[in-house]
Nucleic acid binder design. Structure first.
Lengths: 157, 157
DNA sequence: GTCGGTGCAAATGCTTTGCATTGAT
DNA sequence: ATCAATGCAAAGCATTTGCACCGAC
């Protein structure tokens, strides 16, 4: 049983527009607040990311953009990834040492990820008990928790 | 070509000095099984790692070795880290994209990290209850957990 | 005209590797 | 004598950056 993609209706062809708009708006607002511009390149990159329904890597993103006939440079891709990350639209997921993996961060309720090690699909969930446990662990070390991130690597069979 | 896996060792982890012998022996055995040699450089590297009580990075290891008057090359350090990892004596910990972090793998699951957001200092700790919680979460999704990783971001004051 | 954006190529910085030399059995 | 280990420097690789040019306001 394959995992559900992080975006519930990404396979529904009528849905993307509903998703793209809000994210575009969020990105545009984040850029504007820094006096930065919402350029065609940045729009294409965001749209392409939205079309992914799993973890993705920078070079995969670049390849997809090129395959779509968009000419975006590697430098711009990396620069935009950083912008999207500071805007909270995507987040880095440390999977291996080879390259950076990212995923959409918007619409995630929780900070617990179930990552399918075979397909790369991700489920994001909220685990209230984890907060208690986390605070208990920190208290035992005389520290105060600010945030946490749990990744569980799973197999779907 | 992974080295011969190590057997779990029941050494009392509160006595660092007693750990040095068993780990040397484990490493030596793992090397021997592949017709590799337990050289002075490898011994020094392992001893230095054992003396660390937290996560460490390759360049930190190299610096420490040099400070101790041992002349070990960067290449040998990296090569030995890989050997120690295949032998199951150390394990890589994904903390950031900058460089590889490692920790002793013996006698610990070590999958919970307390990361100080101000100083960058990292404590690796074991949380047995987390495994139950993790399995519960997976079960709720009809999945099977293979591994997990919890990062808690803390402040020290 | 002023800023920021882009692409290219060069630079980074960690890690790996090729190669000649050295060392152990 | 053989086979592996070491050190050095060079190579690899993902990512970043310097710079010249372009475009929007």
């Amino acid at each position: 049983m394959p995992l559900e993609p992080i975006k519930p209706n990404s396979t529904d062809s009528s849905a993307p527009n509903e998703l793209i708009e809000p994210l575009c708006a969020i990105f545009r607002r984040a850029l504007k607040s820094e006096n930065l511009k919402y350029t065609p390149e940045r729009a294409q990159i965001l749209d392409t990311i939205i079309a992914f329904d799993t973890l993705f890597e920078a070079d995969q993103l670049l390849d997809t953009l090129k395959a779509q006939g968009h000419s975006v440079s590697k430098a711009t891709v990396y620069r935009t990834l950083k912008l999207l990350e500071s805007a909270g639209i995507i987040q880095q997921v440390l999977v291996d040492r080879e390259q950076s993996h990212y995923q959409l961060a918007i619409g995630q309720t929780g900070n617990t990820l179930l990552i399918d090690t075979e397909t790369g699909h991700i489920i994001s969930t909220e685990v209230p008990e984890l907060i208690e446990l986390r605070d208990k662990i920190c208290a035992a070390h005389g520290l105060t928790a600010q945030a946490h991130k749990l990744q569980i690597f799973v197999s779907s069979n």
